[in-house]
């Protein structure tokens, strides 16, 4: 399968933060949900993908092209949505459109006005009067009106009400009917991903933990519950982020089959949510850092 986004061994260091040896690929024709806690490098990764930042080392290519030679060509094919307003605030939506439109070869006014009508956006009011939801809808209208092949969104649903979040998912479903389109979006509202994401890319502390088919996660991972006396130095190696109490323990296994073989009926295995995986991975890493540093 073709990759639309490819990061190979990308490193980027800031004061007090570092992306380490990041290798990610995003498949064409699918929705990839990009998850991780706050400050683990999601926005930095997205900025690298959009050439808003340059990596210290490593290769980044989009549509098989690199930014050094094909910057404008690549950007023509991307639609972007940021988590905050990037448009001029003192002008109206209609005026903003006049600024954005000439930048794109494939701009289509009909599509733009369709979305403006669908979202009930006022064309003649200054953008600064827009609510957070309207702002997001306006971004979306701009992102979708130039027949972009790749839609990149940074936290598009943060601060939005459930109704609009559902509307957004419907729009994304409509887009995905076209197998040439690819969507890559970061979020920490992981329930948004359950109905739309084909792949999940998970990063933690500047490192890529996994990219998997969404359904594969519940095949590989499980929440394990059992009695505390099952745990010893060896069996603890099987788990991430063990939480013990008087009543027993809870932990995450990254190899459901092996755990099932090892413990059989002595433990309960439950389907983990993405939040569980984020939480236990964080706890696991923190413990690891504590005991080994």
């Amino acid at each position: 399968m073709e990759n639309v986004i490819e990061l190979q061994n990308v490193n980027k260091a800031f004061k007090g933060f570092e992306l380490k040896d990041m290798s990610i690929s995003v498949k064409k024709g699918f929705v990839t949900g990009f998850i991780g806690g706050n400050g683990v490098g999601k926005s930095t990764t997205i900025k690298l993908i959009m050439n808003l930042l340059q990596p210290d080392s490593g290769e980044i290519s989009l549509f098989g092209l690199n930014y050094k030679k094909h910057e404008k060509e690549i950007k023509q094919r991307i639609g972007f949505v940021f988590d905050h307003n990037v448009f001029y605030e003192h002008i109206t939506l209609a005026e903003m459109k006049k600024i954005i439109k000439p930048a794109y070869k494939n701009w289509d006014d009909t599509i733009f006005y369709q979305y403006v009508n669908l979202f009930e956006l006022p064309l003649k009011k200054p953008i600064k009067t827009f609510s957070k939801g309207m702002m997001m809808k306006a971004s979306l209208a701009f992102a979708l009106s130039h027949r972009a092949e790749l839609i990149i969104m940074d936290e598009p649903t943060s601060g939005l009400d459930p109704i609009f979040r559902r509307e957004l998912l419907d729009i994304l479903h409509d887009l995905m009917e076209d197998e040439e389109k690819t969507i890559f979006f970061s979020t920490h509202i992981t329930t948004d991903l359950d109905r739309i994401a084909d792949y999940i890319t998970f990063i933690h502390n500047g490192q890529h933990i996994f990219t998997k088919e969404h359904y594969k996660i519940e095949e590989d991972y499980a929440i394990v519950k059992g009695e505390t006396n099952l745990l010893d130095r060896d069996t603890e190696q099987e788990f991430l982020g063990i939480r013990k109490s008087n009543h027993g323990f809870e932990a995450l296994t990254t190899n459901k089959k092996r755990t099932a073989n090892l413990f059989g009926d002595t433990v309960i295995l439950e389907k983990p949510t993405l939040e569980d995986i984020m939480l236990y991975t964080k706890k696991g890493n923190d413990n690891y850092a504590k005991s080994y540093s």
Partner: peptide
Amino acid sequence: ALDEKPSTNLLMNSLPYT
């Protein structure tokens, strides 16, 4: 000065301009 805000820089650089 109007184009100096980080968010405007974000916009300009995300559009197909170098």
